[in-house]
């Protein structure tokens, strides 16, 4: 069954169609959340919360964007809300603890944990997210603005300043 038909069936209450949609998009969603949160456990928890929210809000999905884009929009906003509630201090050490598991997972597969990933882990979430959406997933500033409920100008400046911060961090490490 194609995605469009699955969405139609899911909207009319078909549980199997929902399950198939999630099954098809789960890996994409978790990998996106891993890059955003830099923590595999948080990524999996958020993916489950995202699916729950999706079941609740499926009637609002109009099909203007791809279903996967809609899912990552929900996931992004859930993560931002979660971080806002936690009001956690952005302590370097704490952040390093957060991405330790992902670092270990990559290194156990003989993949290098790059300075760029460390630098990305150190910048604020609301700066890292637009960088990932722009430079990895290829969304436009307008699309990211819509996803994060911010103006495209704000997104553009966050991306620019974020890259400058990463560059500075990379130079410091050289």
């Amino acid at each position: 069954m194609e995605e469009g038909e699955l969405i139609k069936s899911a909207k009319s209450g078909d549980k199997r169609a929902f399950a198939m949609l999630f099954h098809q998009n789960y890996s994409f969603l978790v990998k996106y959340l891993m890059k955003v949160t830099m923590n595999p456990d948080t990524a999996e928890e958020l993916a489950q919360e995202t699916m729950a929210r999706c079941i609740e809000k499926i009637h609002l999905y109009q099909g203007k964007s791809k279903f996967s884009s809609w899912l990552i929009t929900i996931a992004t906003n859930l993560y931002i809300d979660q971080q806002r509630k936690k009001k956690r201090e952005k302590n370097w050490q704490q952040q390093e603890d957060l991405y330790r598991k992902l670092k270990w997972q990559l290194e156990s597969r003989n993949e290098e944990w790059t300075d760029a990933l460390s630098a990305l882990g150190k910048i604020a979430d609301n700066v890292r997210i637009p960088i990932i959406l722009k430079h990895y997933y290829g969304y436009s500033y307008d699309e990211i603005g819509e996803m994060m409920k911010l103006s495209s100008g704000t997104i553009k400046s966050r991306v620019h300043n974020g890259i400058l911060a990463v560059r500075k961090e990379l130079r410091l490490n050289e």
Partner: peptide
């Protein structure tokens, strides 16, 4: 460099 690093997460982080 950011793109390459994110690609390595995409390719090698186990899901």
């Amino acid at each position: 460099e950011i793109e390459n690093s994110l690609e390595s997460v995409e390719q090698h982080a186990p899901v």
